[in-house]
């Protein structure tokens, strides 16, 4: 039997992170859960280990501590086979419009941190000649809207980064997958009124990530396929009309 493969899940305390890691563990993978809050990551690690019998460990990682990324990656006991980054923070758009520190945090958490971290892994994977990178971006990055453009802009940047990375690494046989979950019922969206047809459960997103990264061949995945035409329509509205819509 082959040695189990290893997943590094960045964002191990989020609902999507938990669900994704569980899918990998159920498929026999070893899991490393990276997160800022160690106790909360430990809860998820214990839970996944108890449910699956898999080997699950916790890694302390703050997505804003970008200067430590290279040392952190080089300090890993082994280079993972797949890295999935689900980190995201919706933030408070209105606060961010006035509070530059908050705006900076939204931009860095959703774009700078995830992009730089996956970038470090991309170098290592390219050197090794194998590896899969998965970034969870957002449909909010497909077109900026008045209600969440700080978050949307950061996600748009992340989407572009993943697209470029994919373009660069494809000839070497390395995969880069962009996942756009649409609305998801999680801690981040608790209390919001979400349209059921467009809203996925965290488990659904976890399965979609695992399937896309390890079984499928799609490069850009909308968890609920209905989002693809929805975003095409939103994307095709002329700017002179779009700018007047309250979105």
């Amino acid at each position: 039997m082959n040695a189990p493969r290893t997943l590094l899940l960045v964002g191990g305390t989020s609902d999507i992170g938990r669900a994704t890691a569980l899918c990998y563990a159920q498929a026999g993978w070893r899991v490393l859960l990276a997160a800022r809050r160690d106790d909360e990551a430990r809860r998820n690690a214990d839970d996944i280990a108890a449910r699956t019998g898999a080997d699950v460990a916790v890694l302390h990682l703050d997505i804003l501590e970008t200067s430590g990324f290279e040392a952190l990656v080089d300090g890993l006991p082994q280079l993972p086979d797949t890295v999935v980054c689900v980190v995201g923070e919706l933030g408070d758009q209105q606060r961010g419009q006035k509070d530059l520190a908050h705006a900076t945090q939204i931009l860095r958490t959703n774009f700078e941190g995830p992009a730089l971290l996956l970038g470090v892994f991309a170098e290592r994977f390219a050197a090794r000649g194998s590896g899969t990178l998965v970034g969870v971006s957002s449909v909010a990055g497909d077109r900026g809207r008045g209600s969440n453009y700080l978050y949307g802009a950061a996600k748009a940047g992340f989407t572009a980064f993943l697209s470029g990375l994919r373009n660069r690494l494809a000839p070497a046989g390395l995969r880069v997958v962009t996942v756009k979950p649409g609305f998801v019922r999680t801690q981040m969206t608790a209390g919001m009124k979400l349209p059921p047809v467009l809203t996925a459960e965290a488990e659904e997103v976890g399965r979609a990530i695992f399937t896309a990264a390890e079984k499928g061949s799609s490069d850009v995945v909308y968890v609920r396929p209905v989002w693809r035409p929805v975003m095409m329509i939103i994307g095709s509205i002329p700017e002179r009309i779009f700018k007047r819509l309250r979105l």
């Binding site: 809860r43 998820n44 214990d46 839970d47 108890a50 449910r51 019998g53």
Partner: peptide
């Protein structure tokens, strides 16, 4: 309901 983790199991 969000306190839904299994923390340890000894088969």
């Amino acid at each position: 309901r969000r306190l839904d983790r299994i923390r340890a199991f000894d088969p």
